[in-house]
């Protein structure tokens, strides 16, 4: 089924496992989400929830022996990416969809100049000559605030923040329609974080790029996203517009997340974490994955996997006992 109108990206029932020494890790368990053109979707969840796996599945760059896409469909601009062969996907990557990774320190090839690395993606998807490509690469550097003269420098000559900018330049060089940003600012210090996010948002607006921003930081979500998906144990537990999630928080897990944020106005002795530990992905609980930790859990929760309910148009919650918090 193709996208609905305005729906640029549509993920349906994605299921991904990892094989690890005889065990099966259920990383993504039936995730569905949509993204409109030009909008930003935030994927929120703890480490290991499956966010990166979803992004890498869209790009189809999961490491093949351990990882396996078991089911689902991913429609990008009308085409199912999961049905494409490798050669076709290579045309998509970098051109139609680009990805930015978490750790800028290791994301760049230490033995190539930064300019050449941007050049590589330019030459892959365009018919430029080498000189033209180099010129364009220089322009991209300027675009992210790095002087074009630094084309010939090596990654180790840049600070963390600047490296991340190079990575962004690389990702945006061919004008992708979809940008997947996997925790792009997590490894940076707070002051740089703001800068980089600003820049990303500005560029996305400028080029009308649709973006999926993966993060565990609710503050970042608040600043940049239009829609939000909350992921727990490989499933989307709550999904909706920014206001829906922040002002009408519904799923107990999301509530727990917000509660654990320290409030600068309230004086407390202890933080309020969510009790318990995330489940073992090789051995997920029978019913709702959050039930062992949920203060509102009932027998039903432990036995059956909750379906997604649409609370208000566009606001979905997968819970038998959705709450309403403001």
């Amino acid at each position: 089924m193709a996208n609905k109108e305005n729906e640029f990206l549509s993920v349906r029932n994605l299921e991904v496992i990892y094989r690890s020494g005889g065990d099966i890790v259920h990383a993504v368990n039936g995730v569905s989400l949509e993204l409109e053109k030009g909008k930003t979707l935030g994927l929120v969840g703890e480490t290991g929830a499956g966010k990166t796996t979803i992004a890498k599945s869209i790009m189809r760059i999961l490491p093949d022996p351990p990882a396996e896409i078991r089911g689902g469909e991913i429609f990008l601009d009308g085409e199912d990416l999961l049905k494409k062969d490798e050669e076709a996907m290579q045309k998509v990557r970098g051109k139609k969809a680009a990805m930015i990774f978490q750790d800028p320190m290791t994301a760049l090839n230490p033995l190539m100049t930064v300019g050449d690395q941007i050049l590589e993606v330019l030459l892959l998807h365009n018919n430029y000559s080498r000189e033209e490509g180099m010129k364009k690469a220089g322009e991209m550097l300027e675009e992210v605030g790095i002087p074009a003269e630094r084309y010939r420098e090596y990654p180790h000559q840049f600070s963390g923040g600047m490296k991340q900018r190079v990575v962004i330049a690389m990702a945006l060089a061919c004008d992708p329609e979809l940008l997947l940003a996997d925790e792009p600012t997590t490894a940076l210090d707070v002051t740089i974080q703001a800068q980089v996010l600003e820049m990303m948002k500005a560029l996305a607006d400028k080029f009308r790029t649709s973006m999926i921003l993966i993060t565990h930081d609710l503050g970042v979500i608040a600043n940049t996203c239009d829609t939000v998906a909350v992921i727990y144990a490989g499933r989307i537990v709550e999904y909706g517009k920014l206001e829906d999630i922040f002002d009408h928080t519904s799923h107990p897990y999301t509530i727990g997340l917000f509660d654990s944020l320290p409030d600068i106005n309230v004086k407390t002795d202890r933080l309020k974490p969510i009790a318990g530990m995330p489940p073992d992905p090789t051995n997920l609980p029978e019913g709702c994955a959050f039930s062992p930790r949920c203060p509102y859990a009932t027998e039903e929760c432990r036995k059956k996997v909750p379906e997604s309910k649409e609370l208000t148009p566009g606001h979905i919650c997968a819970c038998f006992h959705p709450q309403s918090r403001s």
Partner: peptide, 25 residues
């Protein structure tokens, strides 16, 4: 290594990834 994933994400074909990115490192 991460930069290998980056190279793949750019749409580079595997043989060249091995040659230009993996081998030198």
């Amino acid at each position: 290594a991460d930069f290998v994933t980056t190279a793949r994400a750019k749409g580079q074909n595997e043989k060249i990834v091995v040659r230009k990115h993996m081998l030198p490192n």
